[in-house]
């Protein structure tokens, strides 16, 4: 326990004082029966910052991200997104917060029965209902241009490759111009070249749309490219927190194994 605390202390990043907080998680607990997935987990994300959560498969990374967006209810602890504690929100207020937070699913979660255009229009039709058809088309074309897939506009998700589906999912995440984006394993299941392209795209679009991001991954290359800071989730806790270089040069055995 002492050793873990020391590591945390050593690697604590020097945050810019006064920088506005986008998301804050304090003392978060989540269990499934006897399986304690998150134990007193803490995390802070500043505006414009990309934080990667690194951990082994089954370590609770996806549980964490689902707690953040309200798909799972934490047992204890608080999650504050853009200045609002999500446990205090009504369903309507939660939906409102969700429109300001994008979520890129590991499986992409594109709607199979809809074309790419309909997939992208879906959030617009739900939330930006005052847009005219021309404005909606313009918005759809703009995000498709950003991910380089304008030609797929009338295709179905089943007709696209894995990398293309990921790009379309990213475009759908961006279409409502969220302030925070949660990426759940953005490069899993992709070949290294496509994975690299997606990582670069995450960086480019993050800068263009001025988003903050939490990137859940165990792909160290993706994390190296995209994250300003890395939080290591081990045994349900925030085991270490620091920049890529700081963690890479750390001698702790649990930290080291991710960089070998």
């Amino acid at each position: 326990m002492q050793a873990e605390e020391t590591i945390l202390e050593e690697l604590k990043p020097t945050r810019l004082p006064g920088k506005e907080m986008a998301l804050s998680i304090t003392h978060l607990y989540k269990s499934f029966g006897d399986n304690h997935v998150l134990i007193d987990f803490n995390l802070q994300l500043n505006r414009g910052e990309n934080v990667a959560v690194l951990g082994k498969s089954g370590s609770g990374k996806s549980v964490l991200i689902k707690c953040i967006i309200g798909l799972l209810k934490p047992d204890k602890g608080s999650i504050n997104i853009l200045g609002r504690d999500i446990e205090d929100l009504s369903l309507r207020e939660l939906d409102e917060v969700r429109t300001r937070v994008g979520f890129l699913f590991q499986s992409n979660a594109l709607y199979d029965s809809m074309t790419v255009r309909e997939n992208l229009e879906f959030p617009l039709r739900r939330h930006w209902i005052k847009l005219t058809t021309a404005e909606r088309n313009e918005k759809v074309t703009e995000v498709l241009k950003n991910v380089g897939l304008v030609h797929t506009i009338d295709m179905l998700p089943a007709e696209l490759s894995g990398g293309m589906r990921k790009r379309i999912a990213l475009a759908r995440t961006l279409i409502l111009e969220p302030e925070i984006i949660l990426y759940d394993e953005p490069t899993t299941g992709l070949d290294p070249i496509t994975g690299k392209e997606i990582s670069n795209l995450i960086m480019e679009l993050g800068e263009k749309y001025n988003t903050s991001a939490i990137i859940i991954s165990h792909d160290i290359n993706c994390i190296h490219r995209t994250a300003d800071r890395i939080v290591m989730l081990i045994d349900g806790k925030c085991y270490a927190d620091g920049t890529y270089d700081a963690l890479k040069n750390n001698n702790d055995i649990k930290v080291k194994q991710f960089f070998e």
Binding site: E96, R98, S107, A109, L110, Y111, R126
Partner: peptide, 12 residues
């Protein structure tokens, strides 16, 4: 395929 979750997180 998490499409129902995707709908929920998009505020629908």
């Amino acid at each position: 395929t998490e499409q129902i979750d995707a709908m929920e997180v998009s505020g629908t």
